Simulated scan of single mutants.
Amino acid sequence: MPIELTASQALGLWYGVSLDQVRMDGRDLTLRQMAILLHIYLVPPPHTVRGLAAELNVTKPVITRALDTMGELGLVDRIRDERDRRNVVIKRTVGGALYLEKLGDRVREQGRRLSP
């Protein structure tokens, strides 16, 4: 059953989750990086730099910079596609899965706080 939220409640939920993330996790992902990370983990693979750029309507260098940061944080890996060496395939990591699992838990907790 879907939960109906007012705009203020929805923003409050987002604020609460964002605040928890800032307080509890030293990684400071931009909104673009978070959108890319969520896409990689929520949409079935394979994922390529070219495909992510098209999906998010940004350039390949924008995706590459975001992936550089997320790779340094252990959230994703990149490998060359052996079938087509021009493509770079983005792979999920255990660290990235755990990061998003904790984020999901924070979203659920904030959502519970909104319940009557």
Rank of each mutant, 00 (worst) to 15 (best):
P2D: 06
P2H: 11
I3V: 14
I3A: 02
E4K: 14
L5Y: 15
L5F: 13
L5W: 07
T6F: 05
T6Q: 07
A7H: 02
S8Y: 01
A10F: 14
A10C: 11
A10K: 12
A10W: 14
L11K: 12
L13N: 00
L13E: 00
W14D: 13
W14H: 10
Y15F: 10
G16A: 15
G16R: 09
V17L: 06
L19R: 13
L19K: 06
L19I: 07
Q21V: 10
R23C: 08
M24G: 04
M24Y: 12
D25M: 13
D25P: 00
G26F: 07
G26H: 08
R27F: 02
L29W: 06
L29R: 09
L29T: 02
L29F: 05
T30D: 05
T30F: 03
L31N: 11
R32W: 13
R32Q: 10
Q33I: 14
M34D: 00
L37W: 12
L37Y: 05
L38S: 05
Y41L: 11
Y41K: 09
L42V: 06
L42W: 09
L42P: 00
L42T: 04
L42Q: 12
V43A: 14
P45G: 10
P46Q: 02
P46E: 04
P46Y: 08
P46A: 09
H47Y: 03
T48E: 01
R50F: 09
G51I: 02
G51T: 04
G51M: 01
G51H: 11
L52Q: 02
A53E: 05
A54V: 05
A54R: 14
E55Q: 07
E55T: 06
E55N: 03
E55I: 03
L56I: 00
L56W: 07
N57Q: 15
N57A: 09
V58G: 01
T59A: 12
T59C: 07
P61R: 04
V62Q: 11
I63E: 02
T64S: 15
T64F: 11
T64Y: 15
T64D: 15
R65Y: 10
A66H: 08
A66M: 06
A66D: 10
L67G: 02
L67T: 05
L67C: 07
D68G: 05
T69D: 15
T69K: 11
M70S: 01
M70P: 02
G71K: 08
L75P: 00
L75E: 00
L75Q: 08
V76F: 01
D77K: 08
D77M: 03
R78H: 02
I79K: 13
D81N: 14
E82M: 01
E82R: 08
R83N: 15
D84Q: 08
D84N: 15
R85V: 12
N87L: 15
N87D: 09
V88N: 06
V88M: 01
V89H: 01
V89K: 08
V89E: 08
K91F: 05
K91G: 10
R92V: 03
R92C: 04
V94L: 12
V94C: 00
V94W: 10
V94E: 06
G95L: 03
G96N: 05
A97Y: 13
A97G: 10
L98G: 06
L100Y: 12
K102C: 00
K102I: 08
L103E: 05
D105I: 09
D105Y: 13
V107L: 07
E109M: 04
E109K: 13
Q110P: 00
R112F: 07
L114T: 03
P116H: 12
